[in-house]
Amino acid sequence: MSEPTDITPFFADKQEFVAEVLSRYPDEGRRSAIMPLLWEVQRTELYVSDSRVREIAEIVDTTATEVKGVLSFYSTYHEQPVGKFHVQICSTLSCALAGADEMYDFLVEELGIVHGETSADGHFSLQKVECVGSCGTAPVLQVNDTYYERVGRGRCQHLLDALRQGEMPAPWRERGGDTEGAEKPAALDHTAAPGDRRGEG
């Protein structure tokens, strides 16, 4: 893949940020800055191109191949551009038991793209991901950095409608378990200690 050589450097005007990232690690640990620098690029550009890989390699005094090796190891870095809304569907067991496979089929149908693809207009991309740690509120969709939990059919349709309009709805935060005050079994009241959160908010 050939890239134009006159790309504006990403970190040129971010020297202060780069210095701050490097300062988090000891001198012998300069390479530790690779992951935070990759995150910074991806946050702005939605993926990490080869030219950014070369820039990072230069900053941490290593080769582009080494940085590429790190980039390609981790599943949440992207080597190709993703959509404005990167829809990640958790497919692991607890989500599958709550309909993740059916939700995936629905999203494929609705968005016209499959796992790993980005829509032609760059609005949506779809990725099947492994457990994102929201098993108690399955099934879960992660759109960019935001979790949408207990996404039943209705919520999924509602979420898609909003995203199509270019809006990210506020997530309905749910935690289940001990924080589910309203459905708390009465038999457990005696376990509430003074100052305990139950019964508050």
Binding site: L93, S94, L97, C135, G136, T137, A138, R175, G176, G177, D178, T179, E180, E183
Partner: peptide
């Protein structure tokens, strides 16, 4: 998690 009434921690 899984099919129980009140999933969570």
């Amino acid at each position: 998690s899984g099919p129980v009434k009140r999933t969570g921690v």
